[in-house]
Design a protein around this nucleic acid. Structure first.
Ligand code: FES
Ligand code: FES
Lengths: 140, 140
DNA sequence: TATATACCCGACTAAAATAGTCAAGTATTA
DNA sequence: TAATACTTGACTATTTTAGTCGGGTATATA
């Protein structure tokens, strides 16, 4: 049960952005430097964030990315979905009628993992970007 | 954010066991057949469960494994810990003072991931083996 | 006491996922 | 027109996962 860097960086980068005036573009280069994330990797991530309409891009010199919504309204679940990093706790195909064992019924633990899935997603559903910022004394 | 088979199988196998008389040994071969889990993989898993005193072994013909405690008292967190599959949400070393970026301070998202870590572990802490069994109508 | 059953244990490996990099662009502004 | 910054697809090294393999040892029962 591990969180991957793609999700972690996506949130980190967006959190970085939301500390700056929301209407002026923030360049990936700056985020890369401040947060020590590979620029090329960030580009890959932001392409997805853009496609999923979480940010919009401003090309050219002095360009960068701009948040499309107030940080208060950007839920972590949206971000995760955008970089398509889903929570996967069950062993079986989610829609299939078959179990993880190939048998026709769901296995004895299926319900448990399903519950865990919901539980975790609930966390992401109830957290937004601005929650990250209102902790006491944040710099860097 | 994905659950691996080791943890999933460990819980599945123990849940299987706890449906049988608790004092007579259950062989891995039987579990393997009922739950469609590779026997050799199960052996690997049970070695750890044994070392961590969740089960004890009975060697020889008619042998198998026996739960060391009532299923009611076996928390999922114990099982996960036994097969050493930890939850890892932060990018940094947990005890280190350094951040995931190599800098001297923790990153802007650290607190969030730490909270998530606690949140997930809380789930495992509050579930035990017997919770898996009391759902209506369980066979296979 | 022979034989089958079942646990014991370390080492090994194929395949998949992760965490990036690279190359070759295009658009915009100063 | 030079510099900045986004765009996109393909590629790759490394790590992790999900097992397998081989060669044991202990015990029950026929
Ligand atoms: S996890 Fe869905 S059937 Fe086993
Ligand atoms: S996750 Fe701990 S410092 Fe970034």
């Amino acid at each position: 049960m591990k969180l991957n860097t793609k999700s972690r960086y996506a949130v980190m980068a967006l959190a970085d952005m939301s500390k700056f005036p929301l209407d002026s573009p923030v360049s990936l280069r700056d985020i890369s430097l401040r947060q020590s994330i590979s620029l090329l990797y960030l580009e890959q991530i932001f392409l997805k964030l853009k496609k999923n309409e979480i940010v919009k891009s401003v090309r050219g010199s002095n360009g960068g990315y701009v948040l499309r919504k107030d940080p208060k309204n950007i839920k972590l679940s949206e971000i995760f979905q955008a970089v398509d990093q889903k929570v996967k706790t069950v062993g079986c195909k989610k829609d299939s009628k078959k179990g993880c064992n190939g048998k026709s019924a769901k296995c004895i633990t299926h319900e448990l993992w399903d519950e865990l899935d919901l539980y975790i997603n609930n966390f992401f559903e109830n957290k937004n970007l601005s929650d990250l910022l209102m902790t006491k004394e944040r710099k860097n």
